[in-house]
Amino acid sequence: MIMDGLYYLAGLMLIAGALFSLVAALGILRLPDFYSRMHAASKAGAVGSGLALLAIALVSFDAAVILRALLGIVFFMLTAPISAHLFARAAYIAGYRPAGGFALDEMNERPDAN
């Protein structure tokens, strides 16, 4: 009975993870400017693959697999923000700006701004 519950939970997590990936994909299509799209890709995307890994950890019943899945989750959580941050910085410095402009851009005022 408890085993069945675990399987149900894992199945729901898989579907939720897949839905988050779908929302992230929709987000990068729908959001109006590049920096906003980055939000969708870095958050929803990371949560999507993280939930799938968590589902594996729930139903594998094997310590090595569980630890590897958890390590994978930690790894994705660490790398997703780094790539988003680096990428936003590169795009900003290279002069990509949203078509509508920012409501407020305080980075513009810094001394080494381009």
Binding site: F20, V23, P32, S36, K43, A44, N108
Partner: peptide
């Protein structure tokens, strides 16, 4: 915070009047 954040972004992306809701800005 991560779970909350993913949820908020998901709701924002799926809401029909998304363009009025967002106000992108870079703050110091």
């Amino acid at each position: 915070e991560l779970a909350l954040s993913a949820w908020r972004v998901a709701v924002l992306v799926l809401s029909p009047n998304m363009k009025q809701k967002i106000a992108p800005a870079i703050i110091a």
